[in-house]
Design a binder for these strands. Structure first.
Lengths: 251, 251
DNA sequence: CGCCTAGTTGACCAGGTTCAACAACGGTGG
DNA sequence: CCACCGTTGTTGAACCTGGTCAACTAGGCG
């Protein structure tokens, strides 16, 4: 059933029909999470993984003084708590931004799968690595870019990621986040986000109303953001090139 | 020979004598890299992995305007370019901070190993995940903490990481980074790092001279940094608890 | 002794924060 | 259908953390 998962894993390694089938038919439960509610919380020790099949979410940490830093956004196909497969507990939380549909698969089941199909293990591992690449870019964004560029960069990233999974149309996509969320993601104050966003709109780069973003001037938006999408690139079948024996049985 | 690698992987999964031996006897070359020279550069497509056996390094990206953001620091036992095992090219660079001894193992060889010993694959995967946890904490650091807390946090992190591999003595450890490096890692200006560092020293939290840091008041340093080391924790044998069949053959 | 790198200092400036109030919008109930 | 309410977005003004520019000092090394 988790077709979105198959599509995600295929980005990273070529899968045989058997492998696709195994993933699609993995027994799972479905859960619905209300907006603003945690899907997993810091300190949790999940024994299953939660995959977002519909809706948006964010990874975040809360500081001692109650302030929040959003670490990244999750979109359909993303796994909330893959970390807990190999580490005891979550070091951060994941909250739904709008109503989320979640598919749940047990660690036990996942271990069975990756033990039997090593190529699938590599695909999951690749997913972890791509997340790490997104984090690295976020570090650059927060460390060295202006407010204006930070917000522009965040928009570029969401845009490309949603485009890859077919969730954009004519430069328009859904982005159900408030300016407060945007502030917590970019390390800025709410007030400054508001003013900067107005400037970005006034400059004719985007529109952003009712959780709908439209990119009006892709070139200029990417330019002011210093956005270079290579870090988001999947590794289409790298394994194929470097290690043919991982390709046995691929249809 | 790469004993440091065995020790690192053992943090994440229990290894049989055979597995330890396989890792230790993996054919490899050794290379020395001069201070300030890249071990791998953005855009490179390495066909081998580079493991730091001695010395310090940093991951970084360069912006269009030439400014640099340091993403994380590498210490003995860390792998510079594990990413390139599964992705085509490096999305960032790694540079030596002081003279570095590097062990080089081919992708081919590594694939052979992890195909035959799935538990080792999980251990490498865990290493990727722990790096991701370090990145997440860096995002919080850059996004939401003051200059003073950022620097304190960075020092806490290096301190704990070096302690784990036995490279501290009585709260003192080597940290071969300049104030310019510190600025590029914390997203601050060189001048402000200098002044903030003076304040941290004046407050009696640390001394920092000639690349040697001494933590004078661990409690207070961790408090001002809001440092919570759980994100650094290895997952001692999580797999053992959740999936016994991965423990076959462990001595 | 001279050079180069790393560290330090002062003065001025600006990007971004904080506080406080208000406006717009969508949803709800009477 | 409208009044009410909570959430989200917007604005102004004062303030401050941290940036920039520019010069100078301290060490290490040949």
């Amino acid at each position: 059933m988790p077709v979105s998962l198959v599509r995600k894993l295929e980005q990273f390694a070529p899968l045989s029909d058997t492998e696709k089938q195994i993933v699609q038919e993995a027994p799972m439960r479905v859960r619905h999470v209300e907006p603003q509610h945690d899907i997993v919380s810091e300190g949790d020790r999940p024994v299953e993984i939660s995959l977002i099949t519909d809706g948006f979410a964010c990874r975040y940490k809360i500081l001692d003084d109650g302030r929040r830093q959003i670490i990244s956004f999750l979109i359909p196909g993303d796994i909330c708590d893959l970390r807990a497969l190999l580490f005891r507990q979550m070091d951060h939380s994941v909250a739904a931004l709008n109503g989320c549909q979640i598919a749940i698969i047990s660690h036990q089941r996942l271990f069975d799968i990756i033990e039997k199909y090593p190529r699938l293990a590599l695909a999951f591992w690749s997913d972890s690595m791509r997340n790490a690449a997104i984090y690295r870019e976020a570090i650059v964004n927060l460390g060295r870019r202006s407010a204006y560029a930070r917000i522009a960069h965040l928009l570029c990233e969401q845009w490309i990621r949603l485009e890859v999974i077919g969730m954009t149309r004519d430069g328009t996509f859904e982005l159900p986040i408030t300016q407060t969320d945007l502030a917590d993601a970019t390390g800025l104050s709410l007030v400054h986000v508001n003013r900067t966003l107005q400037k970005i709109r006034a400059d004719g780069l985007i529109t952003f109303r009712h959780n709908l973003v439209t990119v009006l001037d892709p070139q200029r938006l990417q330019a002011v953001a210093q956005f270079n999408p290579t870090y988001l690139a999947a590794a289409p079948h790298t394994v194929a090139a470097t290690h043919p024996e991982f390709l046995r049985d691929v249809g």
